[in-house]
Design a protein around this nucleic acid. Structure first.
Length: 196
DNA sequence: CGCTTTTGACCCGCGC
DNA sequence: GCGCGGGTCAAAAGCG
């Protein structure tokens, strides 16, 4: 896997995310709060994009009411942010699931993941991928699958709590405007609306 | 050479 | 007890 690029300032579309947004398991602020934050500093594109995504269905396995923003994805063609829901209970089954509109299934949330399994699921034409945090000693798992009803959505489920900081956060602490050169956060207007 | 991905096999829980 | 479905393991292959 490649890592975190050097030229944050080259990307005009990048919206600066708060530190906590880089760590899915420390999200505990309301979505609306975050939107307000964007209101204050972010460019219009990112904001509207976020709102659009925010309107997509959130999936959760707990009754937590705290909506929050997830990490940024990246790739040549990446164009989404994640919406997450924090589960307030911090037990062994600490789990967060959210649906993201993205062409890409694997989104870089700042952690390093190692794929350890792939399974086709009963009610979906799409396989489900299983990832583990590749940081030594960290047992966090992640499950990624495409929404069976709308393949333009990706359902990501995190399970567990990282026992370490995101390398992304570490980097961020050193370089406030960090963003990989390849990142382009733009309105996902060009997504191949296979809305049949 | 070390790390990641792939993929079939294996395991386990659950419903019948 | 058996079959099914979901989750994990681990060997082999691939890649930088």
């Amino acid at each position: 896997m490649d890592h975190y690029p050097e030229n944050p300032n080259l990307n005009p579309n990048y919206t600066h995310l708060p530190e906590c947004a880089l760590d899915p398991f420390s999200w505990d602020f309301e979505l609306s709060e975050y939107l307000n934050m964007l209101d204050g500093g972010a460019d219009q594109d990112s904001k509207s994009q976020l709102q659009r995504i925010a309107s997509s269905e959130k999936i959760m396995d707990s009754s937590s009411s705290a909506g929050s923003i997830g990490a940024i994805s990246r790739n040549n063609d990446i164009r989404c942010k994640n919406i997450g829901v924090k589960k307030s209970k911090m037990d062994a089954g600490h789990r967060v699931a959210f649906r993201t509109q993205s062409e890409l299934e694997v989104m870089d949330d700042g952690f390093k993941w190692r794929k350890y399994g792939k399974k086709s699921v009963k009610n979906s034409p799409n396989p489900r991928n299983y990832y583990k945090c590749s940081s030594g000693g960290c047992e966090v798992k992640k499950r990624v699958e495409r929404d069976r009803e709308d393949a333009s959505y990706v359902i990501t489920t995190y399970e567990g709590v990282h026992n370490h900081e995101s390398p992304c956060v570490v980097y961020y602490n050193q370089t406030p405007l960090m963003v990989p050169t390849g990142w382009t956060l733009q309105a996902n207007s060009s997504r191949s609306s296979s809305s049949s």
